[in-house]
Design a protein around this nucleic acid. Structure first.
Lengths: 245, 245
DNA sequence: GAGTGGTCTAGACCACGAG
DNA sequence: TCGTGGTCTAGACCACTCA
């Protein structure tokens, strides 16, 4: 398998080594692809495929018309499931800022099934984009039935925690949280928003939370790039509550 | 973004359409890349990049020296977390067979940390490879301290459920299950074993289960190709047990 | 306009699989 | 041996960014 090291892998390994040893620093631009191709004595498509390896590892970011840049190492963030910490656990202390855009809309598509509401019923969308420094980090779309929506949260709010707090105050305690995790390539829009290559998979989490009456009070679609996020669940079993395998 | 449809996407869309409408059936071989390149009037690298799109979607499988084949649609399978169903929920009724290979080994690497045992302590590995028809489906490596290992399970056992059953009998009830889900490209070995392209992400689940004494009785490394698996968690909150967000 | 990456061409040669 | 895919070349032309 890896017995035949192709040139692109040799080149990718060399550049990766230069990055990890600090000979090329985070934020710096690599030499142009033409220069690199000359230096490594390969044709441009070969060199580009080497860079593609590094892109898919999240080490290098290509910007059309500008060049290839060494990415700042992203803090790896853990999403904790179960409805306890609704945001990533380290967001409070890691310099991650969240901007929120609030929109009113009507239920359509998969939202109808997730929220269990009729098509067209009024919803509020909270579009949360978190940033680490200047770079986009992850994406969340939270949908709440309009009558549960915290009207007191200003649309210009730029702290997702305030939204979460308001939501938590308004509604009864959650009794059931269902979370479905898939991995898929990002859509074009997601790749552009998060500035990731379309070859880097994202973890897509669909979260549905219900209150004690069984009413779904929130549906959330989370998109976490796989190079900087993982998902963690802890399940405690009461010894008498245990369900047989 | 998608305003400029590149040729490879046009070609990929065309072939995808022919597959989804049944004009090319599952298991069939596509015309050779040279023939396709001629038919679509593109050069071979362009055609190959079109096929790469379909590979990354799991629609087409390349076999070196033989050709490109339309893959049989894989049953999408849901891994249910929380330690209730230790295997995929639909494995009992979907014709998925599991072969198990049992090995004794000593704790090393990440297993030390996961199981909380000293380096070199005796473990038993259950290497489970599930098949759907003739095709490999997913991969699991389960590690158990040797003294908890069910010696009664024959190494030639080819039903993973029997292993799970033996394990469940032997040990005390699990009280805490921790599951970490990440998405990453498969290793070369995993890609070869599962016959997936190295561009298709896998869901990697690390599961650690402890009994009531806090002893870790099992660590499992699961590898689920993202085109055929998702992961689902349900959390129930006692109203008095609720943790604040 | 100068420099960058994005896409594509029309070949060449190598490695794998089956007969 | 032959047909397959795997890799690579040396260029061409287009699109984007920035001065």
């Amino acid at each position: 398998m890896q017995s035949m090291p192709s040139r692109r892998h040799v080149i990718a390994n060399d550049i990766r080594h230069k990055i990890s040893t600090g000979r090329i620093k985070a934020g710096e631009r690599l030499p142009s692809e033409a220069q690199l191709a000359t230096r490594y004595e390969v044709a441009t498509p070969t060199l580009r495929s080497a860079l593609a390896v590094l892109q898919s590892e999240g080490l290098v970011e290509k910007i059309h018309g500008k060049g290839n840049f060494v990415r700042y190492p992203r803090r790896r963030v853990t999403y904790v499931g179960g409805g306890h910490a609704l945001r990533t656990e380290s967001s409070t202390e890691s310099g991650i800022r969240v901007s929120v855009h609030i929109t009113n809309l009507q239920a359509h598509g998969q939202l109808i099934g997730l929220l269990g509401v009729p098509a067209g019923s009024p919803l509020t969308e909270f579009l949360c984009l978190s940033h680490e420094g200047k770079s986009p980090h992850s994406l969340a779309r939270i949908y709440v039935p309009r009558d549960l929506s915290p009207t007191g949260v200003a649309a210009e709010s730029h702290c997702c925690k305030s939204v979460e707090a308001k939501l938590a105050e308004l509604r009864p305690p959650l009794t059931e949280v269902l979370e479905r995790v898939t991995a898929r390539p990002p859509t074009h829009e997601e790749a552009a928003t998060l500035r990731i290559s379309s070859t880097l998979a994202v973890l897509a989490i669909t979260r549905v939370a219900a209150d004690s009456t069984g009413r779904v009070v929130e549906a959330a679609l989370l998109v976490l790039p796989s190079d900087r996020a993982d998902v963690c669940f802890t399940t405690h079993h009461m010894t008498d509550e245990r369900t047989s395998g």
